[in-house]
């Protein structure tokens, strides 16, 4: 009896600490939904721009409009995998569970946007270059990233011990990010056909101003959509963890067993 009360006190303190030290669930919901609302509104705006407003590019024609989906998708994917690597590194360092939840949320968002890049890329390639797939450096890099972060989820879910799975996933996330410059360099030397960068040039953007406006609207829109998904997924992961802890406390034999494996 004494022992049990002690355990409850510890739990209560942990919950208080949890509530005060970081984003509460209410804040998660508020930020997630409001960023999402703005992001979706901007997404509608930039689709209107893409279809009705922006001038058609001279040499590539109407196909070039895929660019306004393709490039922001790639940017968000890289942002997401950056967050995965960062959160994973700090997770290994401090061992805070919520950092792992953040890394997981970013990885899932990253997979979504990487998939968008991998779908829109070949569509463009088919019309612009007459082939579904080319071993073009940046497309190849994105494909490999997709596989590397698939490993992130696989390794996470394939261990008996959940803590160990989290650590393995964090390591895969970090080591995978280290490979990005190497893959980029090697496939660049391998062969190149991609249109050269037009937005981030040192002598100023070479885009038509309306095109630039559209690209930046799209970038902003999808960054917000990603952040919203990221925050909401993070909140879900926190809730899952809390539900798991609660069911362990309630003495549900099945969950208790799981909890023993987890800890």
């Amino acid at each position: 009896m004494e022992k049990r009360r002690g355990r409850f006190q510890v739990k209560a303190e942990a919950t208080r600490r949890e509530a005060s030290s970081h984003m509460t669930l209410r804040a998660v919901r508020w930020w997630g939904l409001s960023l999402g609302a703005v992001g979706v509104a901007l997404t509608i705006v930039f689709h209107w721009q893409v279809f009705f407003w922006v001038p058609t590019e001279a040499s590539m024609g109407i196909v070039q409009r895929i660019f306004y989906i393709h490039l922001p998708g790639a940017w968000v994917a890289f942002l997401a995998f950056g967050i995965v690597a960062l959160c994973s590194a700090v997770y290994l360092w401090l061992g805070e569970e919520k950092l792992d939840h953040a890394a997981l949320a970013a990885a899932e968002g990253g997979m979504v946007f990487t998939t968008i890049v991998l779908v829109s890329g070949p569509l463009w390639a088919r019309l612009a270059w007459g082939t579904w797939w080319t071993w073009e450096p940046r497309l190849t890099l994105t494909l490999l990233l997709w596989f590397i972060y698939l490993g992130y989820f696989l390794v996470r879910n394939s261990t008996q011990n959940r803590d160990r799975g989290r650590k393995f996933a964090a390591v895969v996330g970090i080591v995978g990010a280290l490979n990005i410059p190497l893959i980029h360099m090697s496939v660049l030397w391998f062969r190149s056909l991609h249109p050269q960068p037009v937005v981030a040039r040192t002598d100023g953007p070479q885009l038509h101003p309306d095109m630039a406006t559209t690209v930046f609207t799209a970038l902003g829109a999808w960054t917000l959509v990603f952040l919203s998904l990221f925050i909401l997924r993070y909140g879900t992961a926190r809730l899952e963890a809390r539900a798991e802890r609660t069911s362990v406390d309630m003495g549900d034999p099945l969950s208790a067993e799981q909890g023993a494996v987890t800890s």
Partner: peptide, 27 residues
């Protein structure tokens, strides 16, 4: 070290390793 202590280790290792080895294979 990770795959050997996971389920389906024989399939997991190439899935994890081969995408990472692409720069090495190319070079």
């Amino acid at each position: 070290a990770m795959s050997s202590r996971s389920r389906a280790s024989d399939v997991l290792l190439p899935l994890l390793l081969f995408p990472m080895l692409v720069p090495l294979l190319l070079a």
